[in-house]
């Protein structure tokens, strides 16, 4: 473990709880893409499929359970408690293409043709594109009551810190995983596009709204 990865994981955890706090405080899920949240739940389940069979450390075990539980809770809240605040008309990104594309990428790029490795690779590729439904929704509406700049910032820190983590591990641990690294860099680029859209549509947009 290194500080980059610990910081990244904690920022990731904070981003999930910022979103949950916002939804429950506002009693609304307006402006949040349930498709992206569903994709994240799929990412965690497939990524942590061996959470009970392969022991890495207590930290890893606890964090995996928290990520799975909090993402399912978010989807559950959006689909049940705050369903009335959802507007499915604007959450229209076809996630079947993201899931299909991730399956293809996993079939091509994997470390071993075993079930666990294929599922792990699928999860890595899916995570890199999971934010796209949210990005397209934000681009269309420009409204983001619940997608706050803190959420996006925490998400960005998570992704950004993983890159120095990989550099650190490559130098000091002689550890390098090209799948995680390539998909992680793609994800970081998509997240930076997300910030740009947020800045253009929400931050600047807000200024024009004020009388």
């Amino acid at each position: 473990m290194n500080l980059f990865r610990l910081g990244g994981d904690l920022a990731h955890l904070v981003s999930i709880f910022i979103l949950l706090q916002k939804i429950t405080a506002n009693k609304s899920a307006a402006g949040i893409s349930i498709k992206t949240q569903i994709l994240y739940s799929i990412v965690y389940v497939t990524r942590y499929i061996d959470v009970f069979t392969k022991w890495i450390s207590l930290y890893t075990f606890v964090m995996k359970l928290i990520f799975i539980a909090s993402s399912f809770y978010t989807v559950w809240l959006m689909h049940n408690t705050y369903k009335s605040t959802q507007n499915p008309q604007i959450d229209t990104f076809k996630i079947r293409y993201l899931i299909g594309g991730s399956i293809i990428m996993a079939a091509i790029f994997n470390h071993k043709l075993t079930f666990n490795e294929l599922v792990w690779s699928f999860s890595i590729w899916l995570e890199s594109v999971a934010i796209l439904p949210q990005l397209f929704m934000l681009q269309r509406t420009g409204e983001a009551e619940n997608i706050t700049v803190h959420y996006i910032f925490a998400l960005g820190i998570y992704r950004a810190l993983y890159i120095p983590n990989w550099v650190y591990r490559w130098i000091f641990d002689q550890y390098f995983d090209y799948i995680a690294t390539v998909a992680g860099i793609i994800q970081t680029l998509i997240y930076s596009d997300f910030f740009y859209v947020y800045y253009q549509r929400v931050m600047k947009g807000k200024k024009f709204e004020l009388p």
């Binding site: 890495i56 890893t60 470390h111 792990w120 983590n165 550890y175 995983d177 995680a180």
Partner: peptide, 10 residues
Amino acid sequence: AQTLPVHDEL
């Protein structure tokens, strides 16, 4: 043979 990287990251 390329050693399988242990997936110890979240």
